[in-house]
Amino acid sequence: MLKVNNIDVFYGNIHALKDISLEVNEGEIVTLIGANGAGKSTLLKTLSGLLKPKNGNILYLTQQIAGKPAQTIVKSGISHVPEGRRVFSNMSVEENLELGAYLRNDRDGIKKDIDYVYELFPILDERRKQLSGTLSGGEQQMLAMGRALMAKPKLLLMDEPSMGLAPLVVKKIFEIIKTVNSQGTTVLLVEQNANMALSIADRAYVLETGKIVLSGTAKELQESEQVKAAYLGGL
């Protein structure tokens, strides 16, 4: 479904991603783990069109999307839940969800999908008129996810959904990721919480200072000594 071939991404003269290749197949949950500053967010931003790669190409379904504007990429079915949630805190929960459907014009369909998001996250239903800036971190994460789902994505990119959340909330969010995936959405999940991520993923990649150093099925990586030492240590 998504095939990234040898991309390089720079910030000025900082070489943030070095010759990255990876693949996501339809229906999978693929996770990308790595330490702070490894380049995980940079990769997701490149996939969703916020950054342009200098070299390499990105094949999504049948089209080249490297360097295309973000709105084209959203339209083609890739939604990105950014690191730190980035909800529109000056707007209500419901307005955030409506913005998620910005490129859609099917009023009835949008209404139905808002109800679907409320079904997934009943707490958002209770808060629909509340300013999203006043939600708790967990609720904001749910809103960011719901907002991304409003675009009806075929591929969902998630950047550290567990960041700063209590274990119980993280568990809840990971369950929803599994639900959404079982309903047909492919997921590329970036995490530092390697344990949790590997437990729901089919396959995984490990990123270190801009390079992919390891890849395999989630099971293989869970058992790899290298991963245990670096990312699962002490657990």
């Binding site: 916020l50 959203v74 339209k75 980035r86 000056n90």
Partner: peptide
């Protein structure tokens, strides 16, 4: 829609891009 896009962009332009806003 354009008004909502304006508020979204003024709050966070990159997040607005991720919604498909031009």
């Amino acid at each position: 829609k354009i008004g909502k896009a304006m508020r979204a962009v003024s709050h966070d332009a990159d997040a607005a891009r991720l919604m498909g806003i031009n």
